[in-house]
Design a protein around this nucleic acid. Structure first.
Length: 589
DNA sequence: GCCGTTTTCGGCCCGACTGTTTTCAGTCG
């Protein structure tokens, strides 16, 4: 069993990307290597375990996976390698793939540096550039050498690569606010975040901002001289790129109102969604760009005829599609759904009626029970679960049966006060129950039985092997008092990878027992992610979206959790905390 | 290499910029 799960979906995707890169450097046709890269994307977005699919013999049912790719996947799962990769490695040094990461170097240039100068590694590349050997090559000059050296230096200081949305989104909103403040009102008609921030992707490569302006020059000048900017990387008439002091890069593009619909669509992406949309347009006789639709002459309209769109809705509608929310634009089948006018009604922040995971100063929270509950009331919530950490977690005091009994008296008294005042709100008492390293739960069943809702979570021994840590979660799920599994993979974005937990087994167990799966909305967690959330609902699980608030302001994080749910295509009826109190309680175990 | 509202063969997004060139290939998003 353990052997059959030796490699994850991500491992397979990386192997396919390696093959794509080697093929590209080798000079194989575009579509041959793109096929492997596309298949890698499909695997990364797959909620199911690829081992199960391979075992069932249905690999070629996956979109983008044909006979060739399926064979490579099967070999890799069995042995950790494939004949194709072995053959490619014998023809192209693997170390060349690293050179592709140098900005400005693509497959063609890397191949020439290797074939004509024998360069195989970053060190050799650096030495050749410093010795001014690269300029001897046709098509390369002194600037190429400078750029390569800059690229190598940048690569060395670049950290983990992608930035958590919780950092990127406030940064973009701050830039937009500052830009608005720095410009006269008539210089900016509209300005919006685009790219992966607009799609609420959990991590972001660089920032994209789109503006409508009658005077692009003025906007570009203001943008490049914002206080957050450390360096202008490029400045053109309608787009500029800067590096910020926090290391992020940000693009600003300015367009006329006529182009807003096509431009916003284009700069929102993702890339593959745009490609599919453009292919669809082509089939209808139109070529789609960020500026307009232009008739190709192969459709009804005469070649060269142009159509402009001042909104995304109008553009999608012209192509026969319902408007697709940005969170869904990931080329995961949303275009087909929009064509059939069958897009789900995605959950929104205003659907949420309460939360089922939060802390007070009884454990590691920063506010009193009353302050937290009043913050929930102020947000219009009808219920909120007090769930302080249980004993068994070293870093906090933790509540035990005796403390829970004391909390119960406080909760009852607070509830009586609100009832007397006519406030439609119920403070629920629960616990964030520690799942101990050996799989036991930190509190006995009779203590749990007294509580309204029990959230069980793993915080320790996160490096256990797949079987051990999965079994811990399964033990908790099997307990009749455990209602919710909290932040199931225990990851911290950019800081700590997910545990080895076998999510397919966990999700199936949750579905069978009626245990609710949490989408933890804290931007450092976003756990489970969109992929598992979607798989969970496919398997029949119920979901709760919780901010895990440790102070009142944390409740603002709910929009991040909602975004995860929307990226998972979830509707209000998939989420139990969109329900009124009595219905929500019925939905628990 | 994959795929099917034109198709089991013949397609496979689009534009902008850079650096090096005298008209464009390579890279990027």
């Amino acid at each position: 069993m353990a052997d059959s799960h030796q490699y994850t979906n991500h491992d397979v995707a990386e192997h396919l990307r390696l093959i794509a890169n080697l093929k590209e450097i080798k000079g194989e046709g575009r579509f041959h290597y793109l096929a492997f890269r596309n298949a890698a994307e499909v695997l990364d977005a797959l909620g199911e375990d690829i081992n199960d699919i391979a075992a069932a013999g249905t690999l070629t049912d996956l979109p983008g996976v044909g006979k060739g790719v399926a064979e490579v996947i099967a070999q890799f799962l069995a042995s950790g390698d494939s004949e194709l990769a072995q053959k490619l490695r014998s023809q192209v040094p693997v170390s060349l793939v690293t050179l592709l990461e140098v900005e400005g170097l693509g497959p063609k240039k890397v191949a020439r540096l290797w074939r004509e100068l024998g360069i195989e590694t970053l060190d050799e590349l650096k030495a050749a550039a410093e010795a001014q050997k690269i300029r001897q090559l046709k098509g390369f000059g002194s600037k190429s050498e400078e750029k390569i050296l800059r690229g190598i230096a940048l690569l060395a200081q670049k950290q983990s690569g992608r930035t958590p949305l919780g950092v990127a989104r406030p940064a973009v909103l701050g830039l937009i606010a500052d830009l608005k403040a720095a410009l006269p009102a008539d210089a900016l008609t509209a300005i919006e975040p685009a790219g992966s921030v607009r799609r609420w992707q959990e991590t972001v490569g660089d920032l994209d901002i789109l503006a409508i302006t009658p005077r692009p020059d003025e906007v570009m000048a203001a943008f490049c001289s914002l206080p957050q900017v450390s360096e202008t990387l490029w400045r053109g008439e309608t787009k500029s790129r800067v590096r910020l002091k926090n290391g992020l890069e940000c693009d600003l593009r300015a367009v006329a109102p006529t182009h807003w619909g096509t431009a916003l669509q284009y700069f929102t992406g993702n890339k593959q969604h745009n490609i599919e949309l453009r292919e669809l347009a082509l089939k209808q006789g139109w070529s789609l760009s960020e500026y307009d639709l232009e008739a190709t002459g192969k459709g009804a309209a005469p070649a060269g005829e142009k159509r402009y769109f001042e909104s995304e809705e109008a553009l999608y509608a012209f192509l026969g599609l319902d408007w697709i929310p940005p969170e869904m634009r990931e080329a995961r089948g949303e275009i087909a759904l929009a064509r059939r006018h069958d897009l789900p009604r995605l959950v929104t922040v205003t659907d949420i009626r309460g939360e089922l995971h939060g802390h007070s100063d009884w454990s590691d929270g920063k506010a009193s029970i009353r302050e937290m509950a009043e913050a929930a009331i102020a947000r219009g919530y009808r219920y909120w679960l007090l769930s302080d950490h249980s004993i068994g977690l070293g870093v906090t005091g933790g509540v035990d049966a005796e403390k829970l009994a004391r909390q119960r008296r406080i909760v009852d008294e607070l509830n009586r006060g609100w009832a007397d005042a006519g406030v439609d709100f119920r403070l629920l008492l629960g616990v964030e129950l520690e799942i101990l390293a050996d799989g036991r739960l930190a509190l006995p069943d009779d203590a749990l039985a007294e509580l309204d809702v029990v959230v069980a979570s793993i915080h320790s021994s996160l490096r256990q092997d797949r079987e051990t840590i999965t079994q811990r979660a399964l033990n908790a799920i099997a307990n009749p008092h455990v209602d919710i599994l909290g932040h199931p993979t225990s990851r911290l974005l950019g800081k700590r990878p997910p545990t080895e937990i076998d999510m397919e087994r966990v999700l199936r167990a949750c579905a069978e027992t009626g245990t609710v799966l949490e989408i933890n909305a804290h931007p450092a967690r976003l756990d489970v992610n969109d992929i598992y959330a979607r798989r969970a609902v496919e398997l029949g699980c119920k979901i709760a979206i919780n901010t895990d608030a440790h102070q009142p302001q944390h409740m603002d994080f709910i929009e991040y959790g909602i975004a995860v749910a929307r990226r998972a295509w979830l509707r209000p009826e998939d989420i139990i905390n969109t329900l009124p109190l009595d219905k929500m309680r019925q939905a628990l175990k």
